[in-house]
Each structure stands twice: as structure tokens, then as C-alpha cells.
Design a protein around this nucleic acid. Structure first.
Lengths: 245, 245
DNA sequence: TATGTCGTCGATACACTGTATCGATCGATG
DNA sequence: CATCGATCGATACAGTGTATCGACGACATA
């Protein structure tokens, strides 16, 4: 960059036109929170792959290495981002004895929040998240059904919540993937076979996928939200069925 | 690989000591299949982040750019890897009228295969995979329950299979994440609170997570396979419940 | 056999990435 | 006012995916 002083030779730059020792302009105060917010803003705007330590730091008027005082890894940043999203989720609350309602609202709240940050799906379930917000959300989820009729043992409670969460994780991930595919191809959703171009039609035309073809052509295609609700209802039914034992 | 022309140092070397124009030693014949196999071998051995076009090419004694004749992206390579794993999965088959058995074997087959390639979980559900193997697997899944008692409409079939798959995706992902966490911390699995170190214990000690604390302390911790089966059974129960309508 | 022509290979280059190192510089302390 | 210790961030390094393009081998032609 500037003043390269080599051996013996005359100074390349004169003192007065050498950049002023930059007076350390009150280094913008940082905070873990601000860093995470900046990273989330970047991810929301341009996707997860746009989140680089350099860009995050630049958004905060700081050098990249500055962040390493607040984080020790990029992975830690991602963990913090995930936990921040957990913090945004509405905490499921008990609604009388209606455990189905509680689990449904847990699922919907999480799903809605996740869809606001579509990069969240890429991180979801990627590593066990034990951040305070994730823990609080989990606690609220457990507490929301704990003690409801039939849920007298913690095992029952845990099993129900875990099953719903696992379904949720899968559903969010697949849904986001579909949304992206739609956006990338820029086509509407209700005619999947058209959206994926001639390829799929050709594959189906081979006759090797008769059932799949029937699905694509004959099934009543409901939208993603309804599909999600149907699957969720199915899981809840399953929980109810196991409750009767 | 033969003639490594070393040391681009003082280039104007004399003709006779300049490496022989490398006689183009019948450039190792490549194939999309070989590339994918090499990539999978790398991923199996050192994880997904060890899969770089350079390393894959090097494993095949080729230059990185060589691959671009067979792929146009790294993403395409990942898609091919995913489809290859789908190809490894046992195809679910009809077993009489036992749709539960069919779905269970679908789930177990997929899970077992996925756990052999733990990087698969990172890609699973990441983008809609329409590779021939994925399509064939989906077709077999649909066909395995199609026509079983109760599954007379394609909608019912599709809904059941989709729900199981979504649960599967979530379960595989969370399980792999847990396996990694265990391996990273190098601790046993049956005492989660010990594994995650004093942090979790401290959090629980705050008293802000009473239900969670009860879960950690009082629940009967069954192993991952049993947890998976329990959740799967739950989903199947749910499907059965919706069948009665 | 000599001579194009053409397709392909891969060296090089470029713009990035995450992060280690360490001199420079500041605020606080003696 | 002098010294120290903490911290900042420029620089460096080893990677990454991929665009570009000169050069070469193989083939078709004369």
C-alpha cells in the first residue's frame, strides 16, 4: 500500500504527502449483536453465500479481522444467526388443554419466521443449536403441551415435540427448496411438470414412471401451505393415536 | 501424472533442459461417472468441504478445467452426487397389502444409505432433485403403496409418501448433526448434558428451562434408532388415522 | 507425405474466501 | 510524562470456483 521504505534508497514518498496516520477515527463500536444483525441483513438480501466476514465487516465500517474479537469462527457467526432467528419466533404458549393447537401454532410460527429468512432453512438442523433463544423456544414448546390431557410423563411430551420438530425441519427445507426452484426458473408453481421443462415430461413419457406420471397428471395439486398443514395434521393424528395407550 | 514442469523460476532456461512438451500422454479418459465416484470418495473420506473441483480432478490425474467438459458447475457435481446416492438406495417394493411395511422399509433403506454418506444429509432437500435415480426411487415409493387397501386414489398415495419423506429428511438431518456433534466432542451420546459441557448444565441451573431440565434429567433416553422408529411409527399412525375417512 | 483446420486441454489469471501473523498505534496506568 | 498492554487491521497465505486463450494433437485434405 503506502509507504514502502526500501533499503537506503531515497524515500519514495515525502512525509507530507504520505497518508496521515489515520488518527484511529473512534473505531466504530461493534457488538456481537450488531455483527449478527448485519450478517442477517446481508443474508436476507443476497442469500447465505453473500455472507462473508469481509462483507459483514465492511457493512460495519470495520476490517475483517476486527470481527475475530467477537467471534472465533465463521461457523460461530452462523450459529448466532440461527439463534437470532429463533429469537424472532413467537414462543408457543399453552392454550388450555388444546395440545393440538399448541403444536400447530408452534409449527406455524416457526415456519412463518423461517420463510422470512430463507437462508435459515440451509442452516436448520445443520448442527445442534443450543443458543439461548433456541433453548427458550424448545422450553416453551415442551411447556406448551406439558400437562395437557394425556401428556403426564415427560417422555410423552418430548416424543411429541421432537416428532413435530423433525417434521417441521424437513417441511421447511423442502418448501424453501421448491420456492427457490420456482424463483430460479421464474415459473408458476401449479404446473410442476411445465416448470421443470421438457426434461421431466420426457422422462415421464418413457413410461418408466407410471405412478409418478399419474401423480403429476391426475393428482389435485393443492398449494404448499395446504400440503404443509395436511402433513402436520397427519403427524398430530399420529401423536393422538399413540396417546391412546 | 508425468512431467511436472517444476519451478516456473528463471523461465529462459535452455531448450534442452526445458521439460519436454509433455507428449500428451493419452489424457486419462474421463467420464461423468468416474468424476462423480471420485467426488463421492473424497466426500466420504474427508467430508463435503473436501470436495473441490481441483481435488476431484487431481484424483483423476486431470487438470481442474477438464471437468468442465462434463459439468458446467460445481452445483451440478453435487446434484450428480446426490443422485448417485439415490441410486444406491434399495428400491422400496410392494409387500402384499402391508403398506406400513413398505413405507417403513422405504424409510429404513433411505436412512441407512444416507448414513453411509453423511455428507448426503447436507445436500438432502437442498434443491429439488430430479435425477433419474431420484425419480426412480420416488416412483418405486409411490408404487409400493399404490393400490394397497385404502390407497385407491393417487392423492392418498402421494400424501402418504410425501409425509414420510418429509419426516425422513428432517430425521436424517438431525441425526447426522447429532452424530457429528458427538464425534467432534468425542463423548458418548447417552448423557447429552455432559457432552455439551458445563454450558448446558449452567443454563439449566438458571431455572429458566424447567421442562427442558426435566427432559434432560428424568426422561428415559432411548437411542437414536429407536427414536427414529418411534417418530416414524407416529407418522404411520397418522397416515392410518387419515385413511379412515 | 505435407499442410491446414479444428477441437480440446489445461496453464494462467482473477476475484474471492477464511484466517494467522504481527507491527503499529492507541488508551490506560505508573 | 513515560511506559505498558491491549487491540486494530494491513498483509499474507493457502485455498476456492471459474473465464480466457495460447498451444497442441489428431484428423482431413492436397
Amino acid at each position: 500500500m503506502a509507504a514502502r521504505r526500501e533499503a537506503g534508497e531515497g524515500e519514495p514518498t515525502l512525509v507530507w504527502e504520505r497518508p496521515e496516520p489515520p488518527t484511529r477515527p473512534v473505531p466504530t463500536p461493534l457488538s456481537r449483536d450488531g455483527i449478527v444483525r448485519a450478517a442477517i441483513a446481508l443474508a436476507d438480501a443476497d442469500g447465505l453465500e453473500a455472507v462473508s466476514l469481509r462483507k459483514v465487516a465492511a457493512a460495519l465500517d470495520a476490517g475483517p479481522m476486527r470481527l475475530y474479537g467477537y467471534l472465533s469462527n465463521k461457523d460461530e457467526l452462523l450459529d448466532l444467526m440461527v439463534d437470532a432467528v429463533y429469537g424472532e419466533m413467537p414462543r408457543p404458549a399453552r392454550t388450555g388443554d388444546d395440545w393440538r393447537g399448541a403444536l400447530r401454532s408452534l409449527a406455524h410460527g416457526m415456519r412463518r419466521t423461517a420463510l422470512r429468512h430463507d437462508w435459515f432453512a440451509d442452516l436448520l438442523g445443520g448442527r445442534p443449536r443450543l443458543g439461548p433463544n433456541a433453548l427458550a423456544h424448545l422450553e416453551a414448546s415442551l411447556a406448551a403441551v406439558d400437562g395437557a390431557p394425556g401428556f403426564d410423563h415427560i417422555d410423552t411430551v418430548a416424543h411429541a415435540v421432537e416428532t413435530v420438530r423433525v417434521y417441521l425441519f424437513g417441511a421447511i427445507r423442502t418448501h424453501v427448496a421448491e420456492l427457490r426452484a420456482e424463483r430460479d426458473t421464474g415459473l408458476d408453481e401449479r404446473q410442476w411438470q411445465v416448470a421443470s421443462g421438457p426434461y421431466l415430461t420426457r422422462m415421464l413419457a418413457t413410461g418408466r414412471y407410471p405412478t409418478l406420471a399419474r401423480w403429476v397428471h391426475d393428482a389435485t395439486h393443492i398449494d404448499a401451505d395446504a400440503t404443509f398443514d395436511a402433513g402436520l395434521a397427519c403427524v398430530l393424528d399420529g401423536i393422538a393415536a399413540r396417546l391412546r395407550r
